[in-house]
Design a protein around this nucleic acid. Sequence first.
DNA 1: CCCGGTGGGTCTCGGAACTGGACCCAGCAG
DNA 2: CTGCTGGGTCCAGTTCCGAGACCCACCGGG
Lengths: 165, 165
Amino acid sequence: MRRTSFADWPCSIARTMDLLGDWWTPLVLREAFYGIKRFDVFQQELGIARNTLTDRLRRLVDEGLMEKRAYQSEPVRYDYVLTEKGRDFFGVLAVMNSWGNRWLSGDEGAPVVFEHDRCGHEAEAEVVCGHCKEPMSAADTHARLGPGYPARLAERPDIRNRFNR
Amino acid sequence: MRRTSFADWPCSIARTMDLLGDWWTPLVLREAFYGIKRFDVFQQELGIARNTLTDRLRRLVDEGLMEKRAYQSEPVRYDYVLTEKGRDFFGVLAVMNSWGNRWLSGDEGAPVVFEHDRCGHEAEAEVVCGHCKEPMSAADTHARLGPGYPARLAERPDIRNRFNR
DNA sequence: CCCGGTGGGTCTCGGAACTGGACCCAGCAG
DNA sequence: CTGCTGGGTCCAGTTCCGAGACCCACCGGG
């Protein structure tokens, strides 16, 4: 009775969660963005069990978000660096950080803030429409079937209903 | 030996993952953004086990992302609607959707795309700096200690090192 | 008055996943 | 030849997850 897999659902959110949707994976990625590369450092900073870390790193490598590199030989030692696919995931973490700063901080304020080097200011991440660059919120955005949506499913009345407004 | 809790870590990403970091919760929220309100519909659309759904909805209500409302009495029937905190989570899902569309779609293209009502165009979500409104990426952003970071921890050399550039 | 349907759940149980800790191995430094 | 470093694997115990059965209040029909 294995966990149901979302990898084949026609939904990028489900697919993303299938890849990264456990408690540790995003934190491993966060460490990687902080510049952590080595197994031991990941392990110490996160306090994660070594086998669990092995597992997460392997999955991230398999899925192409990180790369395992031998950074020396004799003795051969490996480290883990982000690929472009992995670096591109930064946006998700940044938005998650902003949401958490807004809603989960106590009176003392945000634990960690971002600074944007290009403008030199402290700033929260914001989500905007890729076309008009205006903020994008649930109220002014809706979903449509894309080209990759299975035609067979798109016929179903509940699906049509959901995407039809 | 319960799962280690991230709720008290000085990191909004960890706190967010502690709340929502299982496979189902973001999908329940996705359904809510599609306009789903009722228990049965969540259950049928996701194919989630009923007890698991009960659990996820209860946590979302406890954490203030959703609200349980009696929408009729005799018999009393409940539904679940997003609160402001929950609606604000849309950004995270939108960015996750965009990332998945970019990296996890096959040849046939994205399964679901967003349309931004304000400009009327199909558009992917983009993450920008809240200050200068320019795109924010891992390369041009770095993290700093915020006011809510515990002073005691901030002393530690590994922590100082991490946030110091 | 009883039969079944609807909506929103709870109970049970087997299998999977997470955790902590012990163990492993190659190279090298003392 | 002992022990340390770095990058792991193996194992046992506990907890969590998923499927499906069961529950209960109300309603409408015959």
